[in-house]
C-alpha cells in the first residue's frame, strides 16, 4: 500500500459518501445519473466476486463490502425510495448504457490476462468502470444546473482515478516484482482522460468563483 493508492481509495470513498449524504439528508438525486450508478454497481459486483474466496487484507475486504453496499443502496434509493426517486431526472438521463455493457464484455472476452471466468469478469469490470461515468457527464451537459454536491461528486471520482495513476507509477518504480499491467493501465488512463474536460471547467469555475456550467 502506498500513499497514492490510500489517498485514491479514500477519495473514491468520499465521492460515494458525498452522494449518499445528498440522498439521505436532502432526499434528492437531482443531477445524478441512475445509469452511471447502475453501471458502478455492476462494476463492483463483477470485480469483487473474489471477496469470499481470496483474502488479500482486512482493509481490502472491508472496502469491497463498503463499495458493494453503498453502490447497491444508491441504486435502490434512486429507484425505489418514494421521495428521492421523484427528483430523478429520467427525461434527461437517457444514455443507453446497455450499449456500453456489451462492447466491454466482448472486449473482455478478447483482451484479457487469462481466459478464466473470474479473470474475464474482472477485466470486464475494468473496461466498464472506464466508461461508467459517461451517462453522468452527458446528463451534466444536458442539465446546465450542476449543484455543488454533484460537481464535488464527479470531481472526487476523477481525483481518485488520477491518484491511482500516480500509484501505478510509484509501484512501477519502487516495487521490484510489480508486473506491467497493460490492461489495467490503459483502461485507467482512458477513464481518467474522460474527466480531463470536466476538471478544466470545474477548476476554472472554482477560480472565477462562479457556478459551474459545462459548454454544450
Amino acid at each position: 500500500m502506498n500513499i497514492f493508492r490510500l489517498a485514491g481509495d479514500m477519495t473514491h470513498l468520499m465521492s460515494i459518501v458525498v452522494l449518499l449524504l445528498k440522498m439521505h439528508t436532502i432526499k434528492s438525486c437531482a443531477g445524478i445519473s441512475l445509469k452511471t450508478q447502475e453501471l458502478y454497481a455492476l462494476v463492483f459486483i463483477t470485480r469483487y466476486l473474489d471477496i469470499f474466496t481470496d483474502f488479500v487484507s482486512l482493509y481490502n475486504t472491508v472496502m469491497k463490502i463498503f463499495f458493494l453496499g453503498t453502490s447497491i443502496s444508491i441504486v435502490w434509493y434512486m429507484r425505489y425510495h418514494k421521495v428521492v426517486k421523484q427528483s430523478y431526472d429520467k427525461d434527461h438521463d437517457t444514455f443507453r448504457h446497455y450499449f456500453l455493457i456489451l462492447p466491454c464484455f466482448l472486449l473482455a472476452l478478447i483482451i484479457n490476462d487469462e481466459f478464466t471466468f473470474r479473470e474475464v469478469l474482472w477485466t470486464f469490470s475494468l473496461y466498464l468502470e472506464a466508461v461508467a461515468i459517461i451517462p453522468q457527464l452527458v446528463l451534466l451537459q444536458r442539465t446546465k444546473n450542476i449543484d455543488n454536491l454533484t460537481g464535488n461528486y464527479v470531481f472526487f471520482l476523477g481525483a481518485y482515478r488520477g491518484l491511482y495513476i500516480l500509484n501505478w507509477i510509484y509501484r512501477y518504480f519502487t516495487d521490484s516484482h510489480y508486473r506491467r499491467k497493460g490492461i489495467t493501465w490503459t483502461s485507467g488512463i482512458v477513464q481518467t482522460l474522460l474527466y480531463a474536460d470536466f476538471f478544466y471547467y470545474y477548476i476554472r469555475s472554482w477560480r472565477r468563483n462562479e457556478r459551474l456550467n459545462l459548454p454544450a
Binding site: D50, N60, D113, W122, Y178, R179
Partner: peptide, 10 residues
C-alpha cells in the same frame, strides 16, 4: 502467482 498480485488493488 500472477492473479492475486494482479488483484490486490480495489
Amino acid at each position: 502467482p500472477a492473479t492475486e498480485e494482479n488483484h490486490d488493488e480495489l
